[in-house]
Computed example of a mutant assay.
Amino acid sequence: MPQFKSLLPVRFAVLHSGEPAEVTLNFANNTDVALTTRWRVPQLADPVMRSRAADSREFALLAAKRWRHYRDIHNTARSIAELQRMIAKDAEGEFCFHLKVTADWFPGSLGGAMVRRTWYHHLALDFLFVHPRISSKLVDVRSVGVQLLQGICVVAHALGCQRVWGETTQDSAPFYRRYLEEPVDDQFTISTAEIARLSASLENVRIG
């Protein structure tokens, strides 16, 4: 399996109210995932923003439910090294990991992603979400989603996966079109070349 020098955790900057603010992307553990189930939908007058916040909470709850399933059958990983060991023991096993973005200036996580390594050695992105206060723009933070996507590609690159894929919603499809720079309908695929490009993009903004 090829190794990529930008292994997690990685620190980088997002835009917080228009100013760079440091965050950290890393693997999540059971406690981190459980904390996302405590997110609440803020009271908002704008129905569009309230819907986005509700979607964020729903995705976090679904991701936590899926995580618990894999945890209970001992198929969750908390590092790239752990994933590599699990794959070495069972080349066609299906394993789950969860990524998080955290910051000293924000309570809990800013967002997360639940990902599966499939039996065919691809990565399937089941859920990618940001905190309801961010998705509803109550807190002005930008680029968390794309950095999570880049982090998934770091893992894919390190494992030697040739594809990252997932389903989209009507709201999320424009996000993937923008950052993958290709047509996207109700699903997307990230090729080996795009995995390398997105991995390098995260390395380019690494702090320290």
Results as ranks from 00 to 15, higher is better:
residue 3 Q to K: 12
residue 6 S to V: 11
residue 6 S to T: 12
residue 7 L to K: 15
residue 8 L to P: 03
residue 13 A to S: 13
residue 17 S to M: 11
residue 24 T to A: 12
residue 25 L to R: 09
residue 26 N to S: 15
residue 37 T to F: 04
residue 38 R to W: 13
residue 39 W to G: 04
residue 40 R to K: 15
residue 41 V to S: 02
residue 49 M to Q: 15
residue 49 M to A: 12
residue 49 M to Y: 07
residue 50 R to E: 09
residue 50 R to W: 01
residue 53 A to M: 00
residue 55 D to V: 14
residue 57 R to E: 10
residue 59 F to E: 11
residue 60 A to M: 02
residue 61 L to K: 14
residue 62 L to C: 13
residue 63 A to V: 02
residue 65 K to E: 13
residue 66 R to H: 14
residue 66 R to T: 14
residue 82 E to T: 10
residue 85 R to M: 15
residue 88 A to K: 15
residue 91 A to Q: 13
residue 95 F to M: 02
residue 97 F to K: 08
residue 99 L to C: 09
residue 103 A to V: 08
residue 103 A to R: 09
residue 105 W to Y: 04
residue 105 W to F: 06
residue 107 P to N: 08
residue 108 G to T: 07
residue 110 L to R: 06
residue 111 G to M: 00
residue 112 G to L: 00
residue 113 A to Q: 02
residue 113 A to N: 05
residue 113 A to V: 00
residue 118 T to S: 07
residue 121 H to D: 14
residue 123 L to R: 06
residue 125 L to S: 10
residue 126 D to Q: 14
residue 129 F to C: 06
residue 131 H to P: 02
residue 134 I to A: 00
residue 140 D to N: 09
residue 141 V to G: 07
residue 142 R to E: 12
residue 145 G to R: 02
residue 148 L to V: 06
residue 149 L to T: 04
residue 153 C to E: 08
residue 157 H to S: 10
residue 158 A to E: 14
residue 161 C to D: 12
residue 164 V to R: 05
residue 165 W to V: 05
residue 166 G to Q: 05
residue 166 G to L: 04
residue 172 S to H: 09
residue 176 Y to D: 02
residue 180 L to V: 06
residue 182 E to W: 01
residue 182 E to N: 11
residue 186 D to A: 08
residue 186 D to C: 04
residue 187 Q to T: 04
residue 188 F to M: 01
residue 189 T to E: 09
residue 190 I to F: 04
residue 201 S to G: 09
residue 205 V to L: 05
residue 206 R to V: 07
